[in-house]
């Protein structure tokens, strides 16, 4: 295990896997007679990254503190219909509708966090239950497409800077803020501490409930941002849009693919983004190759397991990061040192 790879962190490996998938993707796309770097393809890949990326950033935070969030698809759907309903096609309603959606999501996240940290319910169950609660509410109140986003709001999705969609930049902005939070704030450090070992964290004087609650709130809010971007893209609210994308399981898969420990305490946002990008490249290539939709799932399943297996085995031999001399690449990538 301790080979030439030993100086690479798991994030480094994920990025390497991403580069590999980009190269293979470009070759396969070329074989199909298409240009991988064409604006249409880049647009498709970056758009594919945006929504899942936002959700996966939130999921990373929650997983870092040792919890999980399975309610994200329903938060996405709920914010999409709520905001669309309040906008009702009027540009003047955009700001209140967005604030409302984010506020509701924050409340949901707060509830998740409180249930996990104070009622001692495992994140898996707490958020599964929360997902069911929201799903019942949506199903009872929204039977189909709802409301309408005004043109000004739809421009968010329609705007591109060069080949880069604005939605992608928003996602990157959120990623940057999350990275800053993890690296530069006390809260960020507490997040890692609580995820690594709640008992040690508590003994060292950290109020363990705070990072857990904050992570859940941020996760729900980021899911709400994703829901709003989907609203901008779809132009109407959709009560099923979150479930359509399987965002719960896929975001967790992306986070783990990105090298974050499912047990919490270790991992980072850059790895997650690389994980999301690997999915997007995979989808793009399978789309160009017109892979049978059933086989797409087979390939996704195999890739998830294989990619995680690449570095999961060596994770165990790695000394704590701070004893390594970071490579230049790692220094850029690893915000957790």
């Amino acid at each position: 295990m301790r080979s030439r790879l030993q100086h690479l962190t798991s994030t480094g490996i994920v990025v390497a896997v991403l580069v590999l998938s980009l190269v293979v993707g470009a070759i396969l796309t070329a074989i199909e007679g298409r240009n991988f770097l064409s604006s249409g393809n880049i647009d498709a890949i970056l758009t594919g990254c945006s929504i899942l990326g936002l959700i996966a950033i939130g999921q990373t935070l929650v997983i870092l503190v040792g919890s999980l969030d399975l309610s994200v698809p329903f938060v996405v759907s709920l914010t999409s219909v709520l905001a669309a309903g309040h906008m009702a096609g009027e540009p003047g309603n955009v700001v209140p509708a967005v604030l409302l959606a984010l506020g509701i999501a924050a409340v949901i996240g707060l509830a998740n966090g409180l249930v996990v940290s104070f009622l001692k319910v495992h994140g898996f169950v707490a958020t599964l239950g929360m997902g069911l609660i929201i799903s019942g509410y949506i199903g009872s109140n929204y039977q189909g497409s709802h409301g309408l986003a005004p043109r000004s709001f739809r421009l968010i999705d329609a705007t591109q800077i060069g080949p880069v969609p604005l939605t992608f930049l928003i996602m990157l902005g959120c990623a940057l803020l999350a990275i800053l939070m993890l690296r530069r704030t006390r809260l960020g450090h507490h997040l890692y501490a609580v995820g690594g070992s709640p008992e040690v964290a508590r003994l060292s004087g950290i109020r363990t409930s705070v990072p857990v609650v904050v992570a859940h709130v941020l996760c729900s809010v980021l899911a709400a941002v994703a829901g709003l971007l989907l609203l901008s893209r779809l132009s109407v609210g959709s009560p099923t849009i979150g479930s359509q994308g399987d965002y719960d399981l896929m975001s967790i898969a992306a986070v783990v693919l990105g090298g974050t420990l499912l047990a919490g305490g270790k991992g980072n946002i850059v790895g997650t983004l690389a994980g999301v990008a690997i999915f997007a490249v995979l989808d793009s290539v399978m789309g160009v190759m017109q892979v049978n939709p059933f086989l797409k799932d087979v390939i996704r399943g195999l890739v998830i397991v294989a990619a995680v297996a690449v570095y999961a085995g060596r994770e165990i031999d790695r000394r704590p990061a701070r004893f390594d001399r970071p490579t230049g690449l790692d220094a850029v990538l690893q915000e957790t040192k």
């Binding site: 249409g40 359509q244 789309g287 939709p293």
Partner: peptide, 23 residues
């Protein structure tokens, strides 16, 4: 006939149509 299957996802299908238009 080139086919893109959205696997029941609106977001994917929008991307599929845009891809067809562009490429």
């Amino acid at each position: 006939m080139e086919t893109r299957d959205a696997q029941d996802d609106d977001n994917t299908q929008i991307a599929d149509i845009d891809y067809f238009i562009a490429e």
